[in-house]
Structures are given as C-alpha cells and as structure tokens.
C-alpha cells in the first residue's frame, strides 16, 4: 500500500476540471499537477504537496500524489 514510484516531471499544468484560478495561492497549489515519466510510462500526478517541484525534478509518487523530491544519489 505504501509503495511509491520515482519518476521525472516532464510537464506542469493545472488539473483538468479545476475551477478558474483565483488569487489565493493556496488554492493554486491544490490544482497544480504534472505529467511524470516513469521509465517510459507517463502519468498525470498531483503536485499539491510539492509546491517547490520544478520541470526535470525527480519525484516519488504514491497513489497519484507526488510526496517528495528524490535526492540525487
């Protein structure tokens, strides 16, 4: 259940179906998401918990939510 998969962010966008962006920055984070590449398989992932994530970052993803940046070994 707690297994998570590392992948690389290839695009950042606002979630589909999200309401119009307001001025509230916290709200902006709620809908921020990314296309993440898992060794060739790409999936849409929420960045709600990783406001600092940027393009090219390696992130650890669990049930569609990026949980942390993975430090380079």
């Amino acid at each position: 259940m707690c297994l998570a998969t590392p992948g690389r962010i290839v695009a950042i966008s606002r979630a589909e179906g999200a309401p119009e962006a307001g001025s509230d920055l916290r709200d902006h984070d709620l809908w921020r998401c990314a296309l993440v590449d898992f060794g060739g398989v790409r999936q849409q992932v929420s960045l709600a918990c990783l406001p600092e994530a940027r393009l090219g970052d390696q992130v650890l993803v669990h049930v569609g939510l990026a949980l942390c940046l993975v430090a380079a070994p």
């Binding site: 259940m1 707690c2 998570a4 979630a15 179906g17 309401p19 709200d27 709620l30 809908w31 929420s46 709600a48 918990c49 669990h62 049930v63 569609g64 939510l65 949980l67």
Partner: peptide, 21 residues
Amino acid sequence: AVGFETTAPATALVAMQRQAL
C-alpha cells in the same frame, strides 16, 4: 479510502477538491 499517512494526503486532497467543486 484506506492507507497509512502515506496515502491519507491524497484522500485529503480529494476532500478539499470535492468541497471546492
């Protein structure tokens, strides 16, 4: 919705988006 603290934030996100929508 099941899971430990690893999974619970994703459920929390659903609850917040549900409310916003």
